[in-house]
Design a protein around this nucleic acid. Sequence first.
DNA 1: ACGCTATGCCGCAAAACCCGCGCCGAGCAG
DNA 2: CTGCTCGGCGCGGGTTTTGCGGCATAGCGT
Lengths: 154, 154
Amino acid sequence: MGGESTFDLDAVDWRILAELQEDARVSYAELGRRVGLGATAATERVRRLVDNGVIKGFRAEIDLERVGYGVLAVVRLRHPSGNYRKLHAELERTTEILQCHHVTGKDCFVLFVAARTMRHLERLTGRIATLGSIATSVVYSSPLPSRVITAPTD
Amino acid sequence: MGGESTFDLDAVDWRILAELQEDARVSYAELGRRVGLGATAATERVRRLVDNGVIKGFRAEIDLERVGYGVLAVVRLRHPSGNYRKLHAELERTTEILQCHHVTGKDCFVLFVAARTMRHLERLTGRIATLGSIATSVVYSSPLPSRVITAPTD
DNA sequence: ACGCTATGCCGCAAAACCCGCGCCGAGCAG
DNA sequence: CTGCTCGGCGCGGGTTTTGCGGCATAGCGT
C-alpha cells in the first residue's frame, strides 16, 4: 500500500477527476448526477481515488497577485552536489519558495518563488544564491497557468 | 471589478485560506469552527474571497504517477518572437503541457510537460521544438511539489 | 448448469449541512 | 441621541451526507 504503482481508472473515474479538478467543492449528489451515478456510488468512487493516492488532496487555488505577491520568478539553481541539508533548511524556512524540483542537466534544481516586489525578490534570490550559482527568470505572464489532467490518449 | 489590484485580508481570512488550501472540501460549519466563526459568517467570508478573485477556484490535486504519467519535465523554449499563434495552438492541442509561463531572459517560455514514458516525452518535445530551440530537463523528484501560500511576513 | 463470492450500485432513514431570512451589537457620523 | 452600516448570529426548511441492507452482474471452481 502507498507505493508508486499506477492505478486503473475507467471512463467514469476520469470524468469524476475532470469534475473535481474544475470544482473540488461540488456536492457528491451533484457529482453523481453529472457522471451518471447515485450519490452513494459517487462518494465511494471518490473515497477509493483518495485512498489509492490518485487524488492527493483538494486545494483552494489562490491568486498570488491579489494577496500581495505581485512578482513570480523561476529560479534555476546549480547546487554543489552533496549537502542537501542546507537546501532543505532553506526550503523549510522560506515560505516564498512555492515549488522545488530536482532535475537533470546542469541546472540541478528549478524553484518557483513568489515575491511582493522586485526588492523582495532580490533579497530572496540573494539568500538562495548562497547555495550555488543561480539564474533567475521573472514571469511576465502565464498563458497556461495550469491544466486539468486528462486520460492519456494513445 | 475584476482587475488586478490587491485585496485586504485580515488574520481570519488568512486562516481560512490556509484551511482551504489544506482541504478545500471542508464544510462551512467545520471551517467556521476551526477559525472561530459561525457557519454563516464563514460562508460569507469565503464567498467574498471568491467574488474578489482571491480564491481562483477549488481543485482536486492528481498524482501524475498514479494515473500513468510517470515522466515530468521542464522544457525551456526559446521562441522566435512574433507568432504567438503557433504556440497558442500547440498549447491548446497538447494536453500533456501542464503549465506555460512567459519569462524574461533568453529562455522565453518555461513549460511543464507530463509524459507516460521517455518515448512519449521524446515525441512531445519533438513537436515543441518546431516552435524554437528548446532545453529539456527531466524531473527526478520534487522536494517541494507545492506549498500553501501564507501572509507576507514583513 | 449450479452454487458461491465479490463487486459495484441503489434505496432508505437519521444526522449534518446549506442557505436565505431577520435580528443584534459595535462603530461612527451628524 | 438618532440613524446608519457592517459583520456576525440564530433559526427553519430543503438538501446533502453517511452508514446499512439489498440487488444485479461477473467471475470461478466443481
